[in-house]
Amino acid sequence: MDLSYDSIESDADLIEWSRAYCRTVRRERGVSVRFDLVDWEVSHRAKRRAAAVKRPKLDGAIVGEPFDWESLDGSDGRPLRCTVSLTREAFETFDRDEWESTLRHELVHVEQYQRDGTTDHGPAFRERAAHLDTDVHCPAFSDPKYVLTCGDCGDLVARRYRDCKLVDERESYRSNCCGASLELT
């Protein structure tokens, strides 16, 4: 890696460093990913996700069952391209260990997608994430606009970054912990 982590300034730098780090993880930890089928971008709008793998939805794709890529019309048997979208605000908020963990998390998604045609956070993901020493969910990096808590015990029920049905109709929902109404804090 020619570019040091501390010298990342532009979106191009962020992509270059992140891509190089992911290639190192692939080599050192045996992650089965074809980077020639992965595009990279940086988001300046995302508030809930530190990064994401954008991919087409494929009918019949199930995590844990290798996808028959040749079954797609015009396919040469290679997986379709996907895009790793990195969130600039998350990068600027996280320390290096958190950012590297985020990238390993996304590598699990790319690996699942390229093999199975889909990805999720189910048991196979959790097992692979543990092997790569990463979390199933990335830490929050921005403050939500709405926080919903249990009306009885005050436990966190949900964070929302924009208005939605849960926020608008919160009086018709109940918490899982106590069955109490939800409060907006």
Rank of each mutant, 00 (worst) to 15 (best):
D2L: 10
L3C: 08
S4N: 15
I8H: 05
I8R: 11
A12C: 04
D13E: 06
L14N: 10
E16A: 14
E16P: 00
E16S: 14
S18R: 01
R19V: 04
R19K: 15
A20N: 15
Y21L: 10
R23K: 15
R23S: 13
V25M: 08
R26L: 13
R27H: 15
R27S: 11
E28P: 00
G30V: 13
V31W: 07
S32V: 11
V33G: 03
V33D: 03
L37Y: 06
V38M: 08
V38S: 04
D39H: 03
D39W: 01
W40G: 08
E41T: 14
E41C: 03
V42K: 03
H44M: 01
H44I: 03
R49G: 00
A50C: 13
A51Y: 07
A51N: 07
R55P: 01
K57H: 14
L58P: 09
D59A: 11
G64M: 09
F67W: 07
F67A: 02
W69I: 05
L72S: 05
L72V: 06
S75M: 09
D76P: 05
D76F: 01
G77E: 09
G77C: 04
R78V: 00
R78G: 00
P79T: 02
P79E: 02
R81K: 13
R81A: 06
T83P: 02
S85R: 11
S85Y: 00
L86F: 13
L86E: 07
R88F: 04
R88V: 10
A90L: 01
A90M: 03
T93E: 12
T93L: 01
T93P: 02
T93A: 09
E98G: 06
E98W: 12
S101I: 01
T102I: 07
L103Y: 12
R104F: 08
V108W: 09
E111A: 05
E111N: 06
E111I: 05
Q112M: 12
Y113L: 04
Y113F: 11
Q114F: 11
Q114H: 10
R115T: 13
D116A: 11
T118L: 11
T118C: 05
T119F: 15
H121N: 12
P123A: 07
A124H: 14
R126N: 08
R126T: 09
E127W: 01
E127H: 06
E127N: 03
R128P: 10
A129W: 03
A129R: 01
D133P: 04
C138T: 15
C138E: 15
P139M: 07
P139E: 13
A140Y: 12
A140V: 00
F141S: 03
D143R: 12
P144S: 05
K145E: 15
V147W: 08
T149G: 06
T149D: 08
C150I: 14
C153H: 09
C153E: 11
G154N: 07
L156P: 14
A158E: 13
R159Y: 11
R160N: 12
R160K: 15
Y161R: 11
R162I: 04
D163L: 14
D168S: 15
D168V: 14
D168Y: 05
E171L: 09
S172C: 07
S172N: 12
R174M: 10
N176D: 14
N176I: 00
C177T: 07
C177A: 00
C178E: 10
G179F: 10
S181C: 09
E183M: 12
T185K: 13
T185G: 12
